[in-house]
Design a protein around this nucleic acid. Structure first.
Lengths: 202, 202
DNA sequence: TACGTGACTTCATCCTCATCAACAACCACT
DNA sequence: AGTGGTTGTTGATGAGGATGAAGTCACGTA
């Protein structure tokens, strides 16, 4: 297994749309965003990935990357040769199953975002976003209620289908409502269940 | 390989959210919609599938179906045992590669919809939808410019993140602009490149 | 200290799309 | 034909979020 580690700084591309597909990338530390580009220049952030997650699954389909991945901070990446991974997985059924689960999980995640983009309003989207981050930090043994955002308001907006001003206003509104405390990129969640209620209230 | 064929009528469930995962389903003829449900009752159509396409990939992740699939018309389904498919694919590398491509293609498709939902306006969304259908009918040897919609305005709206009234208006507007002719569910595309222009114009 | 820059917030205004409601077309069943 | 139910069209109105511009804050540099 080729497991070469490589460093990336904020803004570095891990791969670009159109690049030939060779490997999957496991985030060893740090975080990335992935985004797709439209002909007319519009871009849509399709996900934020953090340590322990795998990027590059989109490219298996055509052997060409269809989106691009950019480091949000200093990060370390393990490159995984896909040919070797496929070969290995033929000999190790549990590995095969893991790969399938990994890809399926990505499909389920995307469906959740479609639900969010298709039928939630601005503040529900932001609440869902914060709760998702909270869960993922918790799953890594970090605080689920205090963390620093790695991405800008603009990037959050692109991910959630909103303009950055709307994101900014929703943050302010949550703060006024006593749900969170926002200091630019430092977030403290005061009332987790209040945020959850924000979601189910429709 | 268990390839039992089964018939479904309009409205029949192929599987429901929460069902145990056992098989993938290949659509032999007919068409389906898949949708996810939200706690508060909201639902979001995540895709329309037609003959030759595979449904059920979402369930591999947790062994539980996370969305539901419903027949849009009389349809025939081939059920494919996933355990046997995995076993076979260990012996037939090209099959393994096909499965990976299939799942990756689904991820790419979802990213396209995220782009649509996150950054396009109503008429662009409908144009993208019609062009996508057109391509898929063409790929099946059917007319890319004349076809019958299998789904209601409500279902199109749910898929595109719009209300059915907005969908209806967008259809009327395209017709006034001479791009298409709409007779309820019968669509004729008059000006394909005009529809494409509708997209890139932003 | 002064200046410049980039990221975030706030405000006033405008536009798109959702909402509510009335109506028309079509189907299945009497 | 008559009836009710479902689906689609159209119009008037309003709300949510986009837009554009200006203001604030933190930080780096001279």
């Amino acid at each position: 297994m080729s497991l070469a580690k490589r460093n990336y700084s904020r803004g570095d591309y891990l791969y670009r749309s159109g690049d030939k597909f060779r490997s999957l990338y496991a985030i060893h530390s740090g975080s990335f965003k992935t985004q797709v580009l439209h002909d007319d220049g519009r871009e849509q952030v399709t996900g934020f990935q953090m340590a322990g997650e795998i990027i590059g699954l989109d490219a298996i389909s055509t052997d060409i990357h269809t989106c691009e991945a950019i480091a949000l901070e200093s990060s370390v990446i393990c490159e995984i040769s896909f040919n070797r991974l496929e070969a290995l997985s033929r000999e190790i059924p549990p590995l095969q199953r893991q790969i399938h689960k990994l890809m399926s999980r990505e499909i389920v995640r995307d469906q959740g975002i479609m639900l969010l983009l298709g039928s939630m309003r601005a503040e529900e989207r932001l609440a869902a976003f914060l709760l998702n981050l909270s869960q993922r930090y918790a799953a890594r043994g970090l605080s689920p209620t205090q963390f620093n955002l790695r991405m800008s308001r603009q990037e959050i907006g692109s991910y959630l289908g909103l303009k950055l001003e709307t994101v900014s206003r929703a943050f302010s509104h949550f703060q006024e409502a006593g749900l969170i405390i926002v200091k630019i990129r430092a977030i403290e969640i005061i009332d987790l269940s209040g945020l959850q209620a924000c979601l189910s209230r429709g």
